[in-house]
Write a protein that binds this DNA or RNA. Structure first.
Lengths: 187, 187, 187, 187
DNA sequence: ATATAACCGAGACGGTACGTCCAGTCTTAAA
DNA sequence: TTTAAGACTGGACGTACCGTCTCGGTTATAT
């Protein structure tokens, strides 16, 4: 009974990862996931509230640890490097899937918590580690909220990724990091 | 040759505005737009490449001038006020539609240019006005790109709006504005 | 595994019969069938390859036994009566639907087998019964193929029904039957 | 005032012939005819009541004289040969177009007179010539109506062509001709 | 020669149906 | 009783073609 259930979850997530890698979110239809995983649609809907939720969880698992935590010795170095890495991630195929998932969460409120729990939280926690380290070193303004700091650094990148109103290369990422950091560092 | 009917365009845009106001993007199906506007689907698809494009144009037209340009006399005042206004807009029903449209553009590449042209560009241009004014006054760092500045101020809001990972009230908006401005102002 | 629903098939066929009776083939659109039967279009297209196929099957079922087999005691009487009955059928509203279906099968190859299986075969089998009876009695030329005999008797009627190049009343039907029978009877 | 352009009529018919030859009736859409002929749709609809009418006229013109009148010296020979020729025509691509046109006339009452006038009448008149010749020779029953005779000979072929319920090769054509003629010849 | 219809090309338009797709729910049979 | 298999509803999608309509430009006849 219970092991059955675990196996089903895992098959679904594995299959979904593969489908996401092959064709992004559009390829991860529930029918495709069901067919590839050998798990029936009914069962999928017993474990997850919606397709977006499945995809978000699968994506989160797959991307865990995809961006290593930099440790350059300084807050400026760490955050600049992190922004650079994230902007590279956004430019990759997986970055496209990230955008699709983010978009899907707007439409599908049931999937959003999964995306936050399995993907966003992990990424943000990594940034929080850098932030706490920098606070301890006295390099950044401790009165600034971690969430504020994180969004200041990465919100601009996400905005560009999603709307495409401006390019998002390394140069742009650095400019953004520079300005954001100036707002976060202790003078 | 008979020119494309202005009446058709306008009927469509008017009907779409109404539908967006009533039920957001999900309500603005092509069939509904066609039915309400009296313009056939075929004609709609001759004028626009996709439903997203129609909705984006209609939304852009409707929102033109929705957020008035602040003029407080100082860069800090102007930008803080602008961030406040925008965060209020995001919290309104129209803000939800904005998020839906942004999300739709990820899925529908054909609609994205319309969203940028008819909505984003206008909003960003308004911020650019504030920015140029502040540069002239010598209040902000003129070496910072307008796009960078704009995204630093509003990207964090958009990110929160779309993913909902953190609240987006006036307090949060102010914190973000404060940190962003610190990165943009001349010392 | 869940089998295809018998209820769905039957609802569709019943609804289609009603629509055919009300407005002929043009009234039996897939949307109308779906609406009236409560069966979704997707399901209809899983059961039948095309609208023509649905209509043909429904029509065949409805018309089964519509023309009773004559039994006058002689081949001449039987076939003459049968031709008369068929020509009356052709003149009725159902005859119009028959012509529409026949025409639709030219355009829609997928529907043709349905029309043959559910309508034509039954009608022709009825004639074959008369033919075999007549052969046993030694009244007709047994070297003539049943199909040839059937088409000789009814092909002329169908041709007139479809193209309308000549009237098709009882008088004409009798003339045709007379000439055809002269070609089929033993001297 | 200004007369209707002969050039337009002819361009349309020429273009339609070409389209019919290339892809049968489905290829002869009004848009395609308009594009290929350089005659506008409005003009086409001023000259003909419907697409079927155009196609029928074009087809009739193209097929005029396609089947030469046999003259074997005897009624049996003439009619047998004629049935053979017609069955060969039905098996050709043009035969398919004939069936499509016949079918279209069921749906489109406005086109039917055109098909009769420009195609059927010509073909039937050819048969009538053979029939009158045979009557003069005293070979066939003069009390039989020409239309009846014609339909007895060709109705079976048309029925098979349209519904495909039985094959229609030379052998079948001969069997049909034999039986039909037996009903028409003087004993 | 010029005016003035009617004609014409180009193609936009409304309308209608098509067949497809996918999400999410429901049903059956087997394990 | 849980599961796999997949049938089903519902609703939107984008396409195709028909026949009508609207332009601006052209052309044959009537003054």
């Amino acid at each position: 009974m219970r092991p059955q259930s675990v196996r089903a979850r895992e098959s679904v997530l594995t299959a979904t990862c593969a489908l996401l890698a092959e064709g992004g979110l559009p390829a991860a239809t529930v029918d495709a996931i069901s067919a590839r995983s050998g798990v029936s649609k009914a069962t999928i809907y017993k474990h997850w509230p919606s397709r977006t939720a499945v995809a978000a969880e699968a994506f989160g698992i797959r991307m865990a640890g995809a961006v290593p935590l930099p440790d350059t010795g300084s807050a400026v170095g760490d955050f600049t490097e992190q922004v650079r890495l994230v902007s590279e991630f956004y430019a990759s195929p997986a970055g496209g899937t990230f955008a699709q998932l983010l978009a899907a969460c707007v439409t599908d409120p049931a999937g959003a918590p999964y995306f936050r729990e399995f993907f966003l939280t992990g990424r943000r926690e990594a940034v929080a580690v850098l932030w706490r380290r920098a606070v301890e070193r006295g390099e950044v303004r401790e009165e600034v909220d971690v969430d504020t700091a994180t969004d200041l650094l990465f919100g601009p990148l996400v905005f560009r990724l999603v709307s495409g109103h401006a390019p998002l290369g390394l140069g742009e990422a650095e400019s953004i990091a520079e300005a954001a950091l100036r707002g976060l560092l202790v003078r």
